[in-house]
């Protein structure tokens, strides 16, 4: 991983990293990406909406309903949704239910490694307000304090049908150009980082994972 050539006056501190590792990571602040001209962007949004690659990261028990969704009974491939094993290539992140602190750290890392535009769907009631584990010491209560969320799907567990409905809503948002979570994240990077660092006590990763 080499340094980006772009230089930004406000540089990420990366002070969670040991000295010798700081060289490996880019310390420039991420920049918001601008949409293209109107009709081109509309066309591209249509393509994006119909080719959603979701990151194959079962972060919680919601992942168990992704299996039926991927298989013959519900078959999400019909709608252009396919799982992808690496964050670099995927565009949708499904938060499968509750996120413990240890998983949240991985969620943030994976989310930042995804390329823009990227979308987040939060499954179940736990990422909304803690759900069943609202008083647990190890699960976060609101995922939108750590990463921006486009679509919430309530329920414990949400049925595969409701997940498909959630995808439909996401497609609608993308086509309307409203799913700009990645830009929102970069715009409010400091707020998100402060929240993240509040719960992740051993912050040993770069401030933004390029």
């Amino acid at each position: 991983m080499t340094k980006e050539t772009k230089h930004n006056p406000s540089i990420l501190e990366n002070n969670g990293l040991p000295e010798f590792e700081r060289d490996y990571f880019c310390d420039a602040r991420p920049e918001q990406s601008r949409p293209l001209a109107k009709y081109i962007e509309k066309f591209l949004n249509w393509a994006r909406a119909n080719s959603l690659w979701l990151l194959g990261f079962g972060t919680g028990c919601g992942a168990v309903e992704l299996r039926p969704l991927m298989t013959a009974r519900y078959d999400m491939y019909r709608y252009g949704i396919a799982p992808r094993p690496t964050p670099r290539q995927s565009s949708v992140f499904i938060i499968g239910g509750y996120a413990s602190v240890k998983t949240t750290k991985r969620i943030i890392r994976s989310y930042e490694q995804m390329q823009q535009p990227k979308f987040v769907i939060a499954l179940g009631s736990c990422p909304i307000n803690g759900g069943m584990y609202w008083d647990s010491y190890n699960t976060i209560n609101r995922i939108d304090h750590y990463i921006p969320v486009d679509v919430y799907i309530a329920g414990c567990m949400p049925r595969p049908e409701s997940i498909i409905a959630g995808f439909d809503l996401l497609k609608k948002l993308i086509k309307e150009g409203q799913a700009e979570g990645a830009n929102k994240y970069i715009e409010n990077l400091d707020w998100y980082k402060a929240n993240q660092k509040k719960i992740i006590k051993d912050w040993n990763m770069p401030d933004y994972n390029w």
């Binding site: 080499t2 990406s33 393509a47 080719s51 290539q89 565009s91 390329q115 823009q116």
Partner: peptide, 18 residues
Amino acid sequence: QPWLDILKTYAKRSAISH
């Protein structure tokens, strides 16, 4: 679907090089 996938990957707004 392959055409859409290919269009979408080209339409990504950011790219990281190593």
